[in-house]
């Protein structure tokens, strides 16, 4: 009788031990991992012209070269735009993983620009539940064209202030990496221009914008972005003005590819905007996709790690 009772017991025992051998690691208990934030929703800190929800990492300096050729419809004599060039040179730096700052110089209206971008919320993969990334970008630009061109009035009639050169942009970026390959963001905002050209133009220009990307392979992504300026803020030039060469405002739309090669990201795109800072591409785009007013362009980003925030062990 004893034998019969002990036999199943022995089996039970044998089974438990072998089960434990199968997964010894369970003995360590549940793993405690800190919050794990989603990475690489976009390959770069810019989608094309506008900011993406990504920041440069803490301690990383990003040297950016932006280049836009002339418009495709400028004709054979201009080699379909490739004879012309508009350039932005910029330096971005990650102060922390959430805070990023940057400066740039544009050949478009000889403009200097600077911005601060802060991530308020970060989308989480594990350890927390934040479903989206929420960032804010505050940017400013200083128009650098000579005063005589910018201000054709005699100084004693209408004094010129340095602030006339300045414009500001505030943008909220609400975005999510939906899957390994698909990310989307909404980035509504406001551009404030201190000095506008016409009496009927508002100084504050509101826009609702969005951008998205689809990864085509591990190293290539397709991006698109659209800036929709709410109607009634930028006046349409009269027929006489249009006849004199003044062009009505158009919304900025861009399509592009991100190609990643180690420390570089190459962004190749076509866009109807020429400028690479907010006041320029959001409020001063006049070309139209439908009649060939598109520019081929590229951004090159090269990162340098200036400081490694991780403690040495």
């Amino acid at each position: 009788m004893t034998r019969y009772l002990l036999l199943p017991l022995a089996f039970a025992l044998f089974n438990t031990t072998s089960a434990q051998d199968d997964d010894l690691l369970k003995l360590l208990g549940e793993e405690e991992t800190g919050p794990e934030y989603t990475t690489a929703a976009f390959k770069s800190t810019r989608v094309i012209n506008g900011h993406s929800l990504e920041n440069t990492a803490h301690g990383v300096l990003d040297f950016r070269i932006g280049h836009r050729f002339g418009a495709l419809n400028s004709g054979a004599n201009e080699f379909w735009g490739l004879d012309q060039a508009t350039i932005r040179l910029g330096l971005d730096y990650g102060v922390t993983d959430r805070l990023m700052i940057g400066i740039g110089r544009n050949s478009y209206q000889k403009t200097y620009d600077g911005f601060v971008k802060y991530k308020l919320l970060r989308q989480c993969d594990a350890g927390c539940t934040t479903p989206v990334t929420l960032a804010f970008v505050a940017a400013t630009s200083i128009n650098g064209i000579p005063q005589s061109t910018l201000w054709p009035y005699p100084e004693e009639d209408r004094p010129f202030y340095f602030s006339h050169r300045m414009a500001y942009s505030f943008q909220m970026i609400l975005g999510r990496k939906f899957s390994e390959s698909v990310s989307f963001q909404l980035n509504p905002g406001l551009v404030h221009i201190n000095l506008v050209e016409k009496a009927d133009q508002t100084n504050d220009i509101y826009h609702i914008s969005g951008a998205g990307r689809v990864k085509l392979s591990k190293r290539v992504a397709l991006n698109a972005e659209y800036f929709y300026v709410l109607p009634g803020q930028i006046p349409v030039p009269s027929e006489e003005e249009q006849a004199a060469g003044e062009l009505p405002y158009r919304n900025s739309f861009s399509l592009g590819f991100d190609i990643e090669t180690g420390g570089h990201v190459f962004q190749l795109h076509i866009t109807n905007s020429l400028a690479m800072f907010e006041r320029g591409y959001i409020t001063e785009t006049t070309e139209q996709w439908s009649d060939g007013g598109i520019h081929f362009g590229f951004n090159i980003s090269r990162v340098f790690t200036l400081h490694n925030p991780k403690p040495k062990r």
């Binding site: 990475t39 690489a40 990492a57 803490h58 301690g59 990383v60 990650g94 591990k218 190293r219 990643e260 180690g262 420390g263 990162v303 790690t305 490694n308």
Partner: peptide
């Protein structure tokens, strides 16, 4: 050492 290395290691 470099943040981008870590991103590429995980992503690519």
């Amino acid at each position: 050492e470099k943040a981008l290395m870590q991103e590429h290691f995980n992503e690519n």
